[in-house]
């Protein structure tokens, strides 16, 4: 069930569109922002709200990589694996994360603190390698900086 706050927020988001279904992606993102990820139950809630079937909603949800259909940690680190970051050594950052938190791309730490996901070029190529944690972007990330950066994300 959507909470009243959620419902109000979603209704607001739909105002920009001529019909409900056009807001599907916005609604998914908003629900995800509150709930962390999109569970089967969230799919049902959204489907009901948008007067669509869960198939309609999930078809859209599973297309987009920023919509999580599996639970993620409290924080999500998006590690850019595109070309400029690859040249500049993103793989070392990935190794560092692996060493330090025992998780590879696509995994979540056991304590639920962090999920690391690969991401397409973050548009920070002049500061490669780049990483985004939650909504904050870090450039010129080197393995030795990882720990300091992560301090903010408990």
């Amino acid at each position: 069930m959507l909470s009243d706050t959620e419902r109000r927020e979603l209704e607001d988001a739909l105002k920009h569109y001529p019909d409900k279904r056009s807001g599907t992606i916005d609604v998914l993102l908003l629900v995800q922002r509150r709930r962390g990820w999109i569970s089967d139950e969230s799919i049902l809630d959204i489907a009901q709200f948008l007067e669509m079937t869960s198939e309609d909603v999930d078809s859209v949800a599973t297309f987009y990589n920023l919509i999580f259909r599996k639970p993620v940690g409290r924080h999500v680190a998006f590690l850019c694996d595109s070309i400029s970051c690859w040249i500049m050594g993103y793989e070392q950052v990935r190794e560092q994360l692996k060493k330090q938190y025992d998780i590879d791309l696509g995994q979540t730490t056991r304590d639920g603190r962090l999920t690391v996901l690969p991401i397409a070029c973050l548009g920070q190529c002049e500061r490669a390698p780049a990483m985004m944690i939650d909504q904050n972007v870090y450039g010129e990330v080197t393995p030795d900086k990882v720990e300091t950066i992560m301090e903010k994300y408990k």
Binding site: D40, T53, S54, E55, F63
Partner: peptide
């Protein structure tokens, strides 16, 4: 309404939710 395509690229799934 209860059949659709899910996923993207070469990981497409045609079925029900």
């Amino acid at each position: 309404r209860d059949l659709n395509v899910f996923g993207a690229h070469d990981a497409l799934y045609f079925g029900r939710e």
